[in-house]
Design a protein around this nucleic acid. Structure first.
Lengths: 125, 125
DNA sequence: CCGGATCCCCGTTGATACTG
DNA sequence: CAGTATCAACGGGGATCCGG
């Protein structure tokens, strides 16, 4: 694939494709939930414990969105007390790869970026 | 790299790495600007024309952030009328790859996701 | 245990008008 | 041409309370 074709993939249709995915995973918690859910189904409270700082409300909202996207499956057990388990769907698991690619870029270039911040802010005073 | 290590890359340090990059590129315009800037330096007005819907203000803000990150270079020509050109730095160009990976995922799975939306919304009524 | 409902804060975005 | 300044609207996200 040529470089031109690549940027077209991003910019195609006024950037609607890339905007769709960023609206989906670009929020504060989605990727963390997906990564946390990777490998093992988990209950609501387990998830909350594994994701420091997330509120009950935001975990609920994030899971609903992921469920609506078909990236996460939700199973309710008719028990007392109630039990609900969440797991990645097959499609949900495919999201791990691109997410990791991004995370790798972040880890690799973070020092450089922070150095640039320093330099930029110093120039501005 | 094992699957476990991959998710650690995402979740590492409470997800700070992935959050950093998402805060950077997860906004409305950044990736579009980067993709548009790919391959050729461009002037402010050119950029604005190539990115439908972006306001002067948001283009300015986005470029400033990218400049601060060291992803975009800015050159001012001492002319009348003023001329300012923007271009990707070498580091900025490395961002294209992971961005494309994400865009590919988006394009590939969008139909599936939209079908899931239909199904989900129908179930809810 | 799970999560819906409500209130509120604040950052982001856009519209508009103005300057070197 | 390439911005800056200001104001208003919107929506994400947290805290809290309540219900099944």
């Amino acid at each position: 694939m040529s470089t031109y074709e690549k940027t077209c993939l991003i910019r195609g249709d006024g950037g609607r494709a890339i905007r769709g995915i960023l609206d989906r995973i670009g929020d504060k918690w989605t990727l963390l939930v997906v990564a946390t859910l990777h490998g093992e189904r988990q209950r609501f409270t387990e998830l909350q414990q594994h994701i420091p700082g997330i509120s009950q409300r935001m975990l609920t909202l994030t899971l609903r969105h992921l469920e609506r996207d078909g990236l996460v499956g939700r199973t309710v057990f008719a028990e007392v007390p109630p039990r609900v388990e969440y797991e990645l769907t097959p499609m949900g698991r495919t999201l791990i790869e691109p997410a990791v690619t991004l995370a790798e870029w972040a880890v690799e270039h973070n020092p450089d970026i922070e150095a640039n911040h320093q330099a930029y802010d110093t120039r501005q005073g």
